[in-house]
């Protein structure tokens, strides 16, 4: 079985990582929903299920930052395909982020939409940098 870039092993690793990332994201959703009911509010801010997306996106950025710290030519082609391309790429999501934000805007919850987008961007950048720093 070829394990190089573009070989069968590479694509299997991407697919497996993608499945794991999606399962982890869905699992985080369940955990967040169970731990704190969506009705719980922090002042006027109530992100509801979008908190799970925020958590998944932040965790994925931290993990990808940490993975990015390793030298790219180290013998980790399959590991990179599995974790960076597959798992991190799938754990984090852009489509749900946009749908969440549009949901807030359609319900005229401008504060929630702003806080959600600002937290996603700010925490994502901070998590990526922290992961990179930890990996070095």
């Amino acid at each position: 079985m070829s394990v190089g870039e573009g070989g069968v092993g590479f694509w299997l690793a991407v697919a497996l990582g993608g499945a794991l990332g999606a399962l982890l994201r869905a699992g985080l959703f369940r955990v967040v929903e169970t731990l704190r009911p969506a009705s719980r509010q922090l002042g006027a801010i109530a992100l509801g299920p979008a908190r799970a997306t925020l958590l998944a996106n932040t965790l994925g950025c931290a993990l990808l930052g940490w993975l990015s710290a390793a030298p790219p030519d180290s013998d980790a082609g399959l590991g990179r395909a599995l974790l960076a391309l597959g798992a991190c790429g799938s754990l984090t999501t852009f489509s749900t982020l946009c749908a969440d934000a549009i949901g807030f805007l359609e319900r005229r919850e401008r504060l929630n939409a702003s806080v959600y987008l600002a937290c996603t961007i700010g925490l994502g950048l901070a998590a990526w940098a922290t992961g990179l720093w930890l990996g070095r």
């Binding site: 999606a22 994201r25 994925g60 991190c88 799938s90 984090t92 999501t93 489509s95 749900t96 994502g124």
Partner: peptide, 23 residues
């Protein structure tokens, strides 16, 4: 919905790569 929305489209799109590419 689990298959297409959570699985396929959730994984097809990515936020971590966007942040890494931004850096």
């Amino acid at each position: 919905r689990p298959f297409l929305a959570v699985g396929v489209l959730g994984s097809f799109t990515t936020w971590s790569t966007l942040v890494a590419e931004g850096h």
